[in-house]
Simulated scan of single mutants.
Amino acid sequence: MKKALIGFLLLFIISGEAISQNQFPSQIWHKGNVFLTDGQGYSGLIKYDLDNNVVQLQADAVSTFTASNVSNFEIYDEIYGGIRKFYSLPYALNGEYETPIFFEVLTQGENIALLCREYIATDNRGMNNWGPMSMNPFWGPPMMTGYRLAFNYYFLKNGKIQRYSLKKKDLFTMLPGYDDEISLFMRKNRLEHDKRGDLLRITAYYNELQN
């Protein structure tokens, strides 16, 4: 009976760990800071929703802010590791009317910044084919079967945000003037034009070339 109880508890603990690993970043609370447009800053636990462009802060109570109220927020992502920073920027997500929405800033320089917006996508590739995200230590274990974390990427330059199509030829359009240098950099480091970590390194290198 005692062995059975211990076995059940171990199974419960393992199952709990599996559930926590199968949650996406936007589904859990993170330690972090929120900075409002009026200059006020608050610390606590943070949960974000990029679909609705709201961020929740859990301190003494739970407060909800929209992208119109927030200048920026930052979180420490314990699942995937590292500090992640999000800014509220005007953009016409649907139609032509610009409204403040949240973008994660991956890297920025004096000339250009790489932004992204994550979303949960249906994964039809099967549970044994997790794609590039699963092999990157920064992004941790594979996600729950049937879904995956995906990203839309944007470049901020000359004060305007332009969505990146994930086509290689468009990468050189977004990062003009150094086609040969970027091509060589990508070949030497085996970088792809459509992966998060690779795009970050390419954009950072481009900003170095500009200096």
Rank of each mutant, 00 (worst) to 15 (best):
K2E: 06
G7N: 08
L10F: 15
L10W: 07
L11G: 06
F12G: 12
F12V: 05
I13W: 01
A18S: 08
A18C: 04
I19H: 08
S20A: 13
Q21P: 10
Q21W: 05
N22T: 03
F24A: 15
H30S: 11
N33P: 04
V34N: 02
L36Q: 01
D38H: 15
G39C: 04
Q40F: 12
Y42W: 12
G44V: 05
L45V: 03
K47E: 09
N52S: 08
N53P: 06
N53A: 06
V55N: 07
D60G: 06
A61I: 10
A61F: 02
F65C: 10
T66A: 01
S68Q: 13
S68P: 01
V70P: 00
E74Q: 13
Y80L: 05
I83N: 15
K85I: 09
K85L: 09
P90I: 03
L93V: 10
E96I: 13
E98F: 01
P100I: 03
F102K: 09
Q108S: 15
A113F: 13
I120Q: 07
A121P: 05
A121I: 07
N124C: 07
R125K: 14
R125Q: 15
G131D: 07
P137G: 04
P137D: 14
F138M: 11
G140W: 12
T145S: 13
T145K: 12
A150H: 02
A150Y: 10
F151M: 01
N158Y: 11
Q162C: 10
R163E: 09
S165Y: 04
K168C: 04
M174Y: 00
M174W: 01
D179K: 06
D179I: 03
L184E: 13
L184T: 13
K188S: 08
N189W: 12
H193D: 13
H193G: 15
D194A: 14
K195Q: 12
G197K: 07
R201I: 13
R201S: 11
N207A: 04
N207I: 06
Q210D: 13
